[in-house]
Design a protein around this nucleic acid. Sequence first.
DNA 1: ACTTGTGAATAATTTCACAGCA
DNA 2: TGCTGTGAAATTATTCACAAGT
Lengths: 271, 271
Amino acid sequence: MVAEPGQGDEVVTTPAEPPAVPHPADEPAVRERARAIPEAAVARLAIYLRALTELSEQGVGTVSSEELSIAAGVNSAKLRKDLSYIGSYGTRGVGYDVGVLIGQVERILGLTRNHSVAVVGIGNLGHALANYNGFPGRGFPVTALFDVDPDLIGVPVGGIPVDHIDDIPQVVADRDITIGVIATPPSAAQEVCDRLVSAGVQCILNFAPVVLQVPDHVEVRKVDLAVEMQILSFHVARRADEGSTESTAAGPDGAVNGTGMSEVDGMVMRP
Amino acid sequence: MVAEPGQGDEVVTTPAEPPAVPHPADEPAVRERARAIPEAAVARLAIYLRALTELSEQGVGTVSSEELSIAAGVNSAKLRKDLSYIGSYGTRGVGYDVGVLIGQVERILGLTRNHSVAVVGIGNLGHALANYNGFPGRGFPVTALFDVDPDLIGVPVGGIPVDHIDDIPQVVADRDITIGVIATPPSAAQEVCDRLVSAGVQCILNFAPVVLQVPDHVEVRKVDLAVEMQILSFHVARRADEGSTESTAAGPDGAVNGTGMSEVDGMVMRP
DNA sequence: ACTTGTGAATAATTTCACAGCA
DNA sequence: TGCTGTGAAATTATTCACAAGT
């Protein structure tokens, strides 16, 4: 049963280059965005939402920050602080009304509307994604699929026929696509990204192990399996010499691997 | 072509709750782990490695922090700082030797050894993962697949026959599995996790939308598609009312950087 | 001339701890 | 009495900016 609450959550940060541009002087960092919810908090709100939804389904009507924080895998102080960014919807001495909180978090996350998703690159991963018809708690219906493979065009995957990427402008406009998911091989990712952006897509979820270049108004999130694996690898390694390093004090190096290289990299797909 | 270097990279951090357990007193935080590389830096090292590998394949022998940082989508100061955590392998006035740096980063990330991967839950995503035979640039070979569906047991997927999860202890030991990937439905995730941990797996990559409870010595990373989508959704929403809410105040000076941060993780599956 | 490596300055995030309200 | 909401402190991460090496 493994009881320890221990770790368990995760957070990823996408720093996003600051100015990046020559910079017209030292903008006093003004331009303060009113209700600035810390990025880190936004990511957790989505997690709280899941926990809340679960509670709601179980018929729970009220939760304390303590209970919810456990379900979400964070500590209660952080949870309260996060929730405080979106307003005060709790009742002192009591806790939060699950229904109310769900509504508020959804509002902040912009989940009151639907976001049509287009998946580009119908390979292994693309197939898997296409079959999440209407993602998790719904709200993110996959309504378009694209690829370049002539054998795939027209073939329905997960109920949706695959279109050729040349039709991106047309289809994105017609189906009001909000989010583009790139599941192509790395070599095609940037071009696909450019096409999506040209078609008006402002949100991209990138599974290709490539750093996409996009204009400032486009938001990119990346999911990189190889990176995740490597981070895990780092921790194994760390733990490994944590136990040994304890002996001698000097000569730790020696280990240097003479190897030449290797590569590494993240997910791939095949269009 | 979208030139701006803008955002584009990603980093993942796994805070890992602190004590969480009553804790046997207030460990003076001793046990100081010598070379403490910030979590955020570790995540980026994996990205640098990819960029370096690409450069190496292109025959590039030396890179400056400026060049590499652009390829990795971060700014050069951060890159240099990150690299400084692993040692001084650059040459002032010149840059870094690509081959040397690759070797060092791999060493730090523990990529000098292989990490056998087991995928549990052979549904859509599981299939996709199984087919990344030997992940990206190798180093993470998938050597075991598990599921509960009798129809799947014994069937080879991506060249590897599926075993029943009851065989986890046996197979994990025999094939020296280091990393367990959970691609099951959320309801089965915790149990599968417990079994993997019991079998000795210390690293888990979780695709199920669940907060796993694990003992302290186990490292968990989570990939949650729904969360990623919701974060994107948040940014669309924010941008939406940014346009309206902005009315007053000085001119819209359009320039404002589209911000960019982000965090997190997410993805789901269904077997 | 250039470019690294890094203290010091900033900024962001997390945690504390407690006043205030139900 | 119990739990939220939140300033303020602590911690962590990012950026600056420059001395030092080639």
